Simulated assay, not measured.
Amino acid sequence: MRKGEKTKQHIIIKSAELFNKKGYAGSSMQDIINVTGLTKGGIYRRFSGKDEIAIEAFQYSGNKLKEMFVEAANKEHTALKKIIAICSVHMDTVNNPPIVGGCPLLNTAVESDDAYPSLRQHTVGAFEDFTSFIQTILNEGIKSGEFRKEMDTESVASFIVSALEGGVMASNLMKENKHVEVVITQLKVLLHAYQKRE
């Protein structure tokens, strides 16, 4: 990787942590300069402004989290266990979040309203990708005979993602992981109900 590319990646990584902690609106270009240790010119040589940095930083964080989900899922051999493993990436969201500052999807979704249309568009895409990933696993579970065919995988996938993000939000708000734990427990109950009975 060339020096210019390394510098750009450094800006993205440090900005991702900054935005995930302070939010997009709460972070200024001066904050980016401070966390990267670069000059204003050093930033603007590589990015047109905060909007461009925010989008690339969000994509970086999202990709890192997705890698963790895929790695967790690949360690399991049933659809149910894969989904629980994915959700368990957030098990210690209060003390040890998978990404510095918490879940980038949740944090950005809360902030990316009509004031930031381009950021909102990327957040919607990330939500759809996550839901599609879960739905693919559910469909594989049906195909393998683990789950019954009448499962509406689209709605169940949407419920799983929404419940998990809600649990992460509640745990972070209350500073206790029990809300994520409750969500995972209830998702197990839901998915067991869809399993085929011998």
Rank of each mutant, 00 (worst) to 15 (best):
F133C: 10
S118N: 13
A163D: 05
V35K: 03
L105Q: 02
T123Q: 00
F69I: 08
E140R: 13
V110F: 14
A193P: 10
S27N: 01
K82V: 05
M29P: 07
N95G: 13
H10T: 01
V161L: 09
L105W: 02
R148Y: 13
T185Q: 15
K21D: 15
Q121Y: 13
V156L: 09
T108I: 00
G4D: 14
N20L: 03
K66A: 10
V168H: 06
K81L: 10
Y194H: 12
E154Y: 03
R46Q: 12
S88G: 11
V168L: 02
G37S: 12
H10D: 12
S27D: 05
T153E: 10
T36S: 13
I12W: 09
C103L: 06
S61Q: 00
V168F: 04
N34T: 14
T93Q: 14
V35I: 08
K6T: 07
Y60K: 04
F133N: 09
F127P: 06
V156H: 10
N172I: 05
A126N: 06
E111Q: 13
P117L: 00
I86V: 15
E76T: 09
L187C: 09
L164I: 10
N172R: 08
K188I: 13
F47T: 08
S155K: 14
L106W: 04
V100A: 12
F130A: 02
M1E: 08
N172C: 12
Q135N: 10
E5D: 06
S155C: 14
K178F: 13
A57N: 03
V168C: 12
V168T: 08
G62V: 02
V156A: 11
N177W: 00
K3E: 09
T7E: 15
S155D: 14
K21E: 09
K8F: 05
S61K: 02
S48V: 15
I53T: 04
K14V: 04
G23H: 02
D31L: 05
I160Q: 05
T93L: 10
D31W: 06
F130S: 05
H77R: 15
A115F: 13
M174A: 06
S132V: 10
S61F: 01
I43F: 03
N107M: 00
E56F: 03
L80W: 03
I11F: 01
K50T: 04
Y24W: 07
L80K: 07
I83A: 12
E76V: 03
S155Q: 14
Y194G: 07
S144G: 11
E154G: 02
F19V: 06
Q30W: 13
S28E: 01
R45W: 11
E56V: 08
D114P: 14
L106Y: 09
N95D: 11
K188Y: 12
G26K: 00
G167W: 00
N172G: 12
V94R: 02
A85G: 02
A170L: 07
D51H: 14
I12F: 11
D129S: 13
V110R: 15
I32S: 05
L80E: 03
L65G: 04
Y194K: 07
H192F: 15
L191Y: 07
E71D: 15
F58L: 08
K22S: 09
H77S: 15
I83R: 08
L105P: 03
K21P: 08
P117C: 04
G42A: 00
Q186T: 10
T93W: 07
Y60E: 12
A157D: 09
S132H: 14
G166A: 02
